[in-house]
Amino acid sequence: MKAIHLFIVGILILSGCAQKPKAPNRKYNHLANKVQSTNIKPHQHIEVAKPSSTSELTPSEIFERYSPAVFKIHTSTGYQGFQGSGFFISDDGLAVSNYHVFRGTTVGYETIILSDGSTYKVTDVYYKDSENDFIIFRVGINHKISYIKIANITPKIGEKVYTIGSPRGLDNTFSSGEISQIRDNGNILQISAPIDHGSSGGVLLNSYGEAIGITSGGIDDSGANLNYAINIKMIKPYIPKQ
């Protein structure tokens, strides 16, 4: 099972969704020097928000309510620029994305671009996991912002799901699909919702508008729309207490 897990994660990274942004003409310092493993221990009891609604939301309602909580990320190695996505999980700037969006890039010149066009920096990194490909960090924003609640349960195969991200740099693109399969003991969600390069780190939502996954990559040119997301349950033990 370990070998299968590493194989799947390898696919996500190799066919992942970071792409070169437009004109990142600045000097950079290595983000890898900033992103350090912390001594945070997995919490045994995490308070997770209950569904925000007792009834399902329409696709338009989901987009209108939660699109402002999703942002675009520009990073660079100093020679080559990349673009990914991320989303807020608290109203004070706590956010998540894929670790591979930041791997080997630079400190201090990464740019977080909100849906309204405002830009911010990463101020703290709380946890990174290169094997499972996620990172938890804080964006330096000084006012309350829109965020997406974390789901309590993993959806079943066949359930409707929605994604918001920035494929090919197209900000806050919305797509829909189903859970195609649940793999790697529930850690990987296979989805039919379309994603592309630049979608890495975007949010996968259920019909209640809750985050159920982090969109991570797919198999290019498969002809079968084979895309994947990291189950949001993977990050729960490492969310810092507020």
Rank of each mutant, 00 (worst) to 15 (best):
H5F: 14
I8F: 15
I8K: 12
L12R: 10
I13Q: 13
I13M: 06
I13L: 08
I13H: 04
A18H: 08
K20W: 02
P21F: 07
P21M: 02
A23L: 12
R26E: 09
A32R: 03
N33W: 00
N33I: 00
V35R: 06
Q36K: 15
S37W: 02
N39M: 09
N39L: 12
I40N: 10
P42E: 00
P42Y: 01
Q44G: 02
H45Y: 05
I46Q: 13
I46F: 08
I46H: 12
I46L: 11
E47F: 07
A49P: 00
K50I: 05
S53H: 15
S53N: 15
E61M: 11
I62P: 09
F63Y: 15
F63I: 06
F63K: 13
R65M: 03
R65C: 00
Y66V: 08
S67A: 14
P68F: 09
P68R: 11
A69W: 05
A69D: 05
F71C: 06
I73C: 10
T75W: 08
T75E: 10
T75R: 08
G81S: 11
S85H: 08
S85W: 10
S85V: 01
F88G: 02
I89F: 06
D92P: 01
V96G: 09
S97I: 02
V107D: 14
V107Q: 11
G108Y: 08
Y109N: 14
I113R: 15
S115V: 00
D116S: 08
S118G: 11
Y120S: 11
D124P: 02
D124S: 12
K128G: 01
D129M: 02
D129F: 03
E131C: 07
N132E: 02
F134K: 06
F134Y: 15
F137P: 12
R138L: 01
V139E: 05
G140R: 10
I148M: 01
K149L: 04
K149W: 02
A151P: 08
A151S: 15
N152M: 06
T154K: 12
P155E: 12
K160F: 09
V161L: 13
Y162Q: 09
G165Q: 00
R168N: 15
G169T: 00
D171V: 07
T173C: 03
S175L: 01
S175G: 04
S176A: 09
S176N: 05
S176L: 01
G177R: 01
E178W: 06
Q181M: 08
Q181H: 12
I182T: 00
R183G: 08
R183E: 15
N185K: 15
G186C: 03
G186E: 04
I188V: 15
L189D: 04
Q190V: 00
I191C: 09
I191M: 13
S192C: 00
P194F: 14
D196P: 00
G198I: 01
S199T: 04
S199G: 04
S199P: 01
G201A: 06
L205D: 03
L205P: 05
L205I: 02
N206E: 03
N206Y: 06
S207T: 10
E210C: 03
I212V: 15
I214V: 11
G217S: 11
I219N: 03
D220V: 05
D220T: 05
D221F: 10
G223Y: 06
A224V: 07
N225H: 12
N227T: 07
N227Y: 14
N227L: 06
A229P: 02
I230R: 14
N231W: 10
Y238F: 15
I239E: 07
